[in-house]
Design a protein around this nucleic acid. Sequence first.
DNA 1: ACCTGAACACCGTTCAAGT
DNA 2: ACCTGAACACCGTTCAAGT
Lengths: 225, 225
Amino acid sequence: MVEKKRGTRGRRPKKTGEAGGDELALTRARVVSTAIEILDRAGPAGLTMRGLAEALGSGVMSLYWHVKSKEDVLDLALDTVLEYRAPAGGSEQDWRGQVTSMLEDWRAIMLRHPWSATLLPSRTLGPNTLVRLESLSQGLSKAGLSDADINAAIWSLWNYVMGATVTRASFGPPDADRAASLQRLAELGARFPAIERSRLLLDDDWDGTFKKGLGFLLDGLAAQH
Amino acid sequence: MVEKKRGTRGRRPKKTGEAGGDELALTRARVVSTAIEILDRAGPAGLTMRGLAEALGSGVMSLYWHVKSKEDVLDLALDTVLEYRAPAGGSEQDWRGQVTSMLEDWRAIMLRHPWSATLLPSRTLGPNTLVRLESLSQGLSKAGLSDADINAAIWSLWNYVMGATVTRASFGPPDADRAASLQRLAELGARFPAIERSRLLLDDDWDGTFKKGLGFLLDGLAAQH
DNA sequence: ACCTGAACACCGTTCAAGT
DNA sequence: ACCTGAACACCGTTCAAGT
């Protein structure tokens, strides 16, 4: 009853040059990057410190030398994924182009790592998030908005992307039938005539919808001249 | 080592008319509503099936008669909180008013239960969420948008509110100093001149910013005539 | 129909210890 | 400086059983 699963990954002496990648030194960077791999594959619920250690070929508690806690791992993974390298010469670009390309890059990254959209709301803004806010801020300063409007504009765009990504992630490709079953519900009750008519829940041109909505918002900003 | 904490909440025979509220029958509705209380007080991490049972004065496993799993409890709590009763005569209202009041109600509710903003992205849309989408859909149909634009408009507004709430919840009143410390970071590095200048992170007029941004978006929609 | 405790298979993390 | 296993105090849920 107290027997332990030893199997293939019991302790063994370290051999240099061993195949498999297991022999690499444990580093903070390596911990974070395999955490990201696991998150991509299994989502936040699939990440455990025990599983992470196993994937790294180390004991569980070894992780705690490089990392403060599981929360810490999540914070680091999130900030790593959100990294943004502003394209060179961005400051000469027109504001709409600069803002749009940064936001689309942001959205694309979050969709590539869907867990990030789920996690971002509940944790601190990291340095890389600040880089994005700064780029947004600079872009909008060229839009001719009043000082009073500019912060509201930044947050509007931020919120829009955040919401779009989070919504998109919650539908997700794995369950196309979820939307279908909701649509059926909407039809059945006949309590939702407008949704039914526009087939809102079946529309899956996410990219187009994102672009169009962003256009609405930018139009609204431009209109404040 | 195997001793058990019996104390005040050990089994006792059911007495009718007993004081304290403990004697109420266990119902699905009661399970959900005390789950909401706990979520409000302690957040998603603070909700455990064991704690929930204790708050209800029942054994843990009794819950599973009324509820399928913890996930189920969260889904139910979320949909309960999101309930929307469209104001009478909404269909005669002008579209901007109808849309705005529904969205502000939605935002207010989510801010009153901050965990809901965190949870919504990762779970199914419930019936009550559909009611809100329907109201949005009906309101916008009066705005004179083309059929091609209307779904994009719905999702834009949805995304905006979602993002605004989620962002707001992630700052939260508990840590006004978090923003301050971020601002310090921004100043220190001098890598974020635009953020620093506008004092973006110190701005805490969330309500005003929300309204203004919503205005930008609605202006953009109106401009599509 | 409704409620129960014991037990199972997990978690994250503290600690005292090894090298 | 870096890594370790044992142990602690938790989880959600299955099960077989009670009324």
